[in-house]
């Protein structure tokens, strides 16, 4: 399934990878003068069944900008937003909270209004009179028939997870999948080679597919190299939690485009992808997750 959804990525990677053999040696830094920049607000919000909403409100920055930690946090976090979540009947104003596992580490959290499957949630963000709004729903979650760890062929310590899923014939499902390894990962991180899928190719069928490791940390985010190395396996002894979420179509479109933008990023042959936001008046997304959790011990 992963290969399916990412095959164009591979295709482009092959070609680019081949070219990059020629290219990487011949690169140099250049100074370029970029066109004018427009400020906008960015919303990264989610709500999951049984959990309160979590919303990050940030500013965008000019492409070339200061990058040390203090100025970065000061410049991107919007500290004085009034963030309200409502399910049409009840509503809650979220509280500014320190969230050390996230970047930036300041977000807005709810406490009383918890997500419920099938419900629609409205988000309103008021930043000094500027109002941003968005709507999402929490679809019913799916549950794997089974999931196990298997070593890679000819490898004695690394492998992937193999879940089996019976997809309903209808409606079409949209997913985002995350994993977290014991204490090695600080949070659930989206799958390494793309976390967003749909079941258009196997509706009404039972399929087994592979999950490789999510990007563990953000130590090295260099994005210039398009090499052939894929890597990204789990190790024997890992305790792996898998968070499989169903999302609605507009959230799927957003995450799909965002991952595509990340994968075509710097591809000299691709046109930049515009990311369809579901936020009225800003950038980003407000996503409802119908989450299902599994834990696998890699043995």
């Amino acid at each position: 399934m992963k290969t399916l959804n990412k095959k164009n990525g591979y295709l482009v990677l092959m070609i680019i990878g081949f070219l990059s053999l020629l290219l990487e040696a011949c690169s140099k830094d250049v100074n370029i003068k970029l066109p004018a920049f427009t400020e906008s607000y960015v919303i990264d919000g989610e709500i999951e069944q049984g959990k309160p909403a979590m919303v990050f409100v940030t500013n965008n920055t000019p492409y070339f900008g200061t990058t040390d930690s203090i100025t970065m946090i000061q410049s991107i976090v919007v500290p004085n937003a009034i963030v309200t979540v409502s399910d049409g009947v009840n509503s809650e104003v979220l509280t500014k909270t320190f969230l050390p596992d996230y970047i930036p580490p300041i977000g807005y959290m709810g406490t009383s209004l918890l997500g419920e499957v099938g419900k629609t949630y409205n988000l309103t963000v008021n930043i000094e009179g500027k109002i941003l709004t968005a709507t999402t729903t929490i679809p019913a979650p799916v549950h794997y028939n089974s999931i196990y760890f298997k070593l890679q062929p000819n490898e004695d310590s690394t492998g992937m997870l193999w879940p089996t899923l019976s997809a309903p014939a209808d409606p079409e499902l949209y997913f985002r999948i995350f994993t977290k390894r014991g204490t090695k990962d600080r949070r659930y991180v989206p799958l390494r080679r793309g976390s967003v899928y749909n079941d258009a190719t196997f509706q009404g069928q039972t399929v087994t597919f592979s999950l490789s490791r999510s990007r563990a940390n953000l130590d090295n985010i260099t994005n210039i190299s398009f090499g052939f190395r894929f890597g990204g396996f789990f190790k024997l002894g890992d305790t792996i939690s898998v968070r499989t979420c169903t999302v609605d179509k507009s959230s799927y479109d957003f995450w799909k485009a965002m991952e595509q933008e990340k994968s075509t990023n710097n591809n000299p042959f691709a046109t930049p992808v515009s990311i369809p936001s579901n936020i009225n008046g800003g950038l980003g997304t407000w996503t409802g997750y119908g989450a299902d959790y599994e834990t696998v011990y890699a043995k």
């Binding site: 970029l34 066109p35 004018a36 920049f37 427009t38 906008s40 960015v42 990264d44 940030t58 500013n59 965008n60 920055t61 000019p62 492409y63 900008g65 991107i76 996230y102 970047i103 930036p104 991180v189 989206p190 953000l218 985010i221 965002m258 933008e261 990340k262 990023n265 930049p272 990311i275 950038l283 980003g284």
Partner: peptide, 13 residues
């Protein structure tokens, strides 16, 4: 022209 932090990544505008 710009960039923003999102889902622990940097997104280019």
């Amino acid at each position: 022209i710009g960039r923003y932090f999102f889902d622990n990544q940097i997104i280019i505008q």
